[in-house]
Structures are given as structure tokens and as C-alpha cells.
Design a protein around this nucleic acid. Sequence first.
DNA 1: ACCTGAACACCGTTCAAGT
DNA 2: ACCTGAACACCGTTCAAGT
Lengths: 222, 222
Amino acid sequence: MPKTPRQTTRRADALTKMKVVHAAIEILDAGGEAALTFRTLATRLATGSGALYWHVADRNTLLTDATADVLARTLSDLPKVDEPAPAIRAVALAVFDAIDAHPWVGSHLSQEPWHRAIGEIFERIGEQLEPLGVAADAEFDCASALTSYILGTASQNAINATRHPGGVDRETFLESVAERWIQDNPGRRPFIRRVAAQLRDHEDRRQFLAGIDLILSGACLR
Amino acid sequence: MPKTPRQTTRRADALTKMKVVHAAIEILDAGGEAALTFRTLATRLATGSGALYWHVADRNTLLTDATADVLARTLSDLPKVDEPAPAIRAVALAVFDAIDAHPWVGSHLSQEPWHRAIGEIFERIGEQLEPLGVAADAEFDCASALTSYILGTASQNAINATRHPGGVDRETFLESVAERWIQDNPGRRPFIRRVAAQLRDHEDRRQFLAGIDLILSGACLR
DNA sequence: ACCTGAACACCGTTCAAGT
DNA sequence: ACCTGAACACCGTTCAAGT
């Protein structure tokens, strides 16, 4: 019997940048940013770590591309909304939910505020401000404030929502945070004492939207 | 002649946690988060890398402690302000400036939203809301929105303000960001086109405060 | 009690060599 | 053109051994 295999070692299907990026997203979603290494990625794609560099420049660019991929899908899936305020809320919530589902997206955007996805968000928010009735000379500040708020809040929320050491649930965790904040200066944290129960029980999405509406109603006064 | 040295190798002055933290802050300020390694830190303190672990638990705790040190000084230096709105603006600006001067503080706080410094900021903001006239049931949302906005905006600003590759200045950099955002979807970025000049020329602190005031005026409507 | 520095188990990235 | 995998130059962290 002749030896059957001729080129067993080589990949059958060619690697592409897209395949690399999508495999990276799976790893990031499953294990967070620390889980993404060129070794695990190469193993999952059944290739050598060097092969990956033929398709992506480096780890940071890979993270940037993965972030762009997730948010491009998120934003293009968004149904058209006619009224300006609901349209802004829809964009905000979509970004919030995407970052909640992919916390590493939030961390990466925080590190790269010039990311193309931020341009897209900024445009989608900004274009609604004139129809909303925001004064022309306040539009830029308002769009900036909303964009910053959305990204900052969503990122922080996603990290808070991540499973915490010891496997404690969200409520227990938030309660312990409030308790620690009070103990850091016992007797002089009247506000945190007063809202500790809300801190424990609040719904993140609802609170997020409340902040959006705060900014919007402030913007319409000028 | 007898051999003079008896214990040349040993440190003269004992290491303390505070000395380690302060040396870390110097390294972080000079070279950013990537510059802080246990090897450079040990070299600067004229000790072995293992010695550092006697005083600090690990790299992340060191970053947490360095962040706490910077912000504790920032917040305790803050002069007392009587009027609620100016008091909130003073806290916001102090945090903004501290993160501008120490960008790694912003990145670390984004990664650790339960940090004690965030509790302090949350309290200082929250305690002003009742005197400001915010409705009782809106105080929690308002304090959360302000805190998120402050941290998110300050972090992003600090990263944008960091010296960029190629040594380009801030204006040139911001101009190229606007240009890229427009080119990502040419012909369909009317808002960014309209505000591109403002994006290039805006003052960060002024814009940051504008966002604070947007939230505050929105909060006083309820 | 505190410090030293080599050793361990990782990384991202490069590159000569293969197909 | 694309892939392989060893090699390089780093990391954080541990730990036996010193004082």
C-alpha cells in the first residue's frame, strides 16, 4: 500500500483577513481581551502564528478591525427611525447593547477615540440634532457630549456586568461596592448611603437612557 | 589594608509601599502604562524585582494604588465651593485635569469602575444635587450620568491629547481624524463635514464643561 | 522581616525555510 | 503568494537563598 498523504500539513481552505477577524471575535467574546493571543488564535485556525501576520498587521490592528466589524453590523442592522429623539435613543441603545455583549469593544474604543465606528456614531447622533431643535451653535458640543456619554457609560456598564471573581452575582457585587465606598469615609458619605439600595437594584439600560434624556432635554433649552 | 565593604549590596533606606507607588507614578507619567514594568521599577528603586512583591500584591493593584494616590491628592486639594453648580464644575474640572496630566489614571478607572476614587467623585457630585434643586427621585440617575460623563470624557480627551505617532500636533491630528471619518462614507457625512472645523479647533476643557452644563440644566427641569 | 536575582511560564513579533 | 514553526526579546510572578 502506498503512502496516502501528500500534503497533510497544509491548510485546505485559504485563510483570509475576515476569517482571522471572526475567529478573534469568537475568542474575545468567550474569554475577554486577555484570551486573545496569537497562539490560541493560530491553534483555532489550525495554522502557525506567523501565518496570521500575513493577514493582519498586529494585535492592536486586529482588535481595531474586530471592533469595527461588530459595530458595523450593529449600526447597519438599525431600523430607520423618523423622530429625532427616538432615533438618538435607538443608536445609543444599540451601541450600549453591543458593548454589553462584547465588553472588549468598549475597552478598545476607550483606547482609540478616533476609531471609525466613533465617527459613525458621532454622525448618526449629530445629524438628528438640528431636527430635534438644538441651536446650531450647540450642536457640536451636544453631539460630543452624547457620544462621550454613550461610550463611557456603556464601557463601564459592560465591565460591571462581567462575571466577577468569586462568582458573586451582580446585586451582591454592587452592594459590596456601595458598602466599600461608604467605609472609605464612614459617616461622611450621606449621598451614597441614601442611594445604596438604588445602586444595588437599578437597571443599567434604564439608567443609561435616563442620562441620554438628561443631556437631550438640557440641549433643547438653549 | 582590610577589605572595607561589609554589606554593600543591601539597600540603605528601607523600601515602603509608598515609595514603590510613587516611583511607579513617575514612570507612568513619563512613559505611559506600557512603561511600567517590574524590571524598570526595580532598577529605578535599586532593588530586585522580587522585592517589590513584598510591598505590592501585583501590577494591577499597584496601578490601582497609584490611581488612588493621584486622585486622593487631587480631590483633597480642592477648595470648598458653596454654590452647588460651581461645586460640581470644580470637581469635574479637577478630575478632568488630573486625568489630562496622568492619562493612565483614566484608562485604569475605565477598567475598574468600582475604584474607591469613583466613590469619592460620586459622593461629591451627588451631595450637591439636592441643594441644586434636582428632584429627589432623579438624584441617583443624575449623579450616575455626571460621573460616567466625567470619567468617559476625561479619559478619551487624555488619550487624544497624548503625543501621537509621527509627532503631529493636536490640530493636525484632529483634522486628519475628521477627514478619515468623512472618507469612511464620502458624501454621507453632512454633520461631520459641518463641524470639522470645530472638531479641529475646539478647546477640550470648554467643551467638557459644556457637557456638564447640558446634564445639569437637563436635571433641573424634572 | 526584608531583599536578591535566577527561573518559570508566558507573551507579540520576526523570519528563514518550505510549498 | 501564502504558510510553518522555531527563535528572539520581552513580560509578570514565584521562590530558594541570602542578610
